[in-house]
């Protein structure tokens, strides 16, 4: 299984509302992170297996970008942490087909569950990434799933640290210890989302620097940065615009400690892009490039 790692630089997370932006501002990003799920519709066939109806317009755009910039895949539908009825070999096979078509530099997924069984051949999808308990038996479950993904998809596989707004008591492992153990056990890398970390640290009152200390930073292949806002006493990982200063500071602090970093991606939800305009996006990508250059150029 290939674990090659590309050094890609400044990444942009693709959203449908950015289809003109990615064509008109190629110079602003070195690689594009795509959520494959937004380019297809899942349907259940008569045999109960998942079918994927791909959007031809989306494929044309991806083909265009792939001819000019590397792509990485960030899936949202794997539901790795579902105890039953969510994780689907059909879905993984679809990702493997896309890997053969687009040669993603790596594939990532969230350390969470979103799907549950719901009637014969159906599932329920909550549309929100719910964290799994950081316990030994969850580690076992995930290790098996990660092995299946790595076996099927010929690309380095990364797991993303989750954002969570509630505290699950009596967990056997801390989040960084769980991530570290899972990486050691499976050979998967880490997509360290600094905005998720900032959000969790702020909402739950812990030091993000202590969290970073507890990780094995050699596992980090990709970083995410994003923006958010306050709502009723909580800070939300809303991907709603400019990245806040504490996240830029975390980025500056962690960058020199990541020997295997492949790229840093700025995330903004599609709904916000038309409201905020392209200047903010260009500004964040420029600033990110400046930070990377100060730390020795493309990672």
């Amino acid at each position: 299984m290939s674990q090659r790692r590309a050094r890609l630089g400044v990444g942009l997370s693709y959203q449908g509302s950015l289809r003109e932006f990615v064509r008109e501002h190629l110079e602003a990003y070195d690689f594009l992170e795509v959520i494959p799920d937004i380019f297809w519709t899942e349907e259940h066939g008569p045999d109960g297996a998942l079918r994927f109806r791909e959007n031809p317009e989306g494929l044309r755009l991806l083909d265009w970008v792939a001819a000019r910039r590397p792509l990485v895949a960030h899936s949202v539908g794997m539901s790795l942490g579902s105890a039953e009825g969510g994780f689907s070999p059909d879905y993984v096979a679809q990702l493997a087909r896309w890997q053969r078509r687009y040669h993603f530099a790596w594939l990532s997924e969230h350390l969470s569950f979103t799907r549950l069984p719901h009637g014969p051949g159906e599932h329920m999808d909550l549309g929100v990434m719910l964290p799994v308990p950081y316990d030994e038996d969850t580690l076992e479950l995930l290790a098996g799933r990660v092995a299946q993904v790595r076996q099927a998809v010929d690309a380095p596989f990364l797991l993303e640290n989750n954002v969570f707004y509630y505290q699950l008591p009596e967990q056997e492992l801390s989040e960084p210890a769980f991530l570290k153990r899972l990486g050691e056990r499976t050979g998967s890398g880490l997509l360290l989302d600094l905005h998720n970390l900032h959000t969790n640290a702020r909402n739950h009152g812990f030091s993000p620097l202590d969290f970073l200390e507890a990780l094995d930073l050699s596992q980090v292949v990709e970083l995410h940065i994003a923006g958010g806002y306050e709502w009723e006493g909580f800070y939300l990982d809303a991907h709603s615009g400019a990245c806040p200063e504490p996240v830029w500071e975390l980025l500056e602090q962690v960058l020199p400690r990541l020997p295997n970093l492949g790229g840093v991606v700025f995330e903004m939800f599609g709904n916000y892009a038309p409201l905020l305009g392209t200047d903010i996006l260009l500004g964040e990508l420029r600033r990110l490039r400046g930070v990377l250059e100060r730390h020795g150029g493309r990672p």
């Binding site: 519709t41 899942e42 349907e43 949202v76 719901h118 599932h123 549309g127």
Partner: peptide, 9 residues
């Protein structure tokens, strides 16, 4: 109940 995050579906 929500069965999908596929917008069109």
């Amino acid at each position: 109940p929500p069965t999908s995050v596929m917008y069109v579906r």
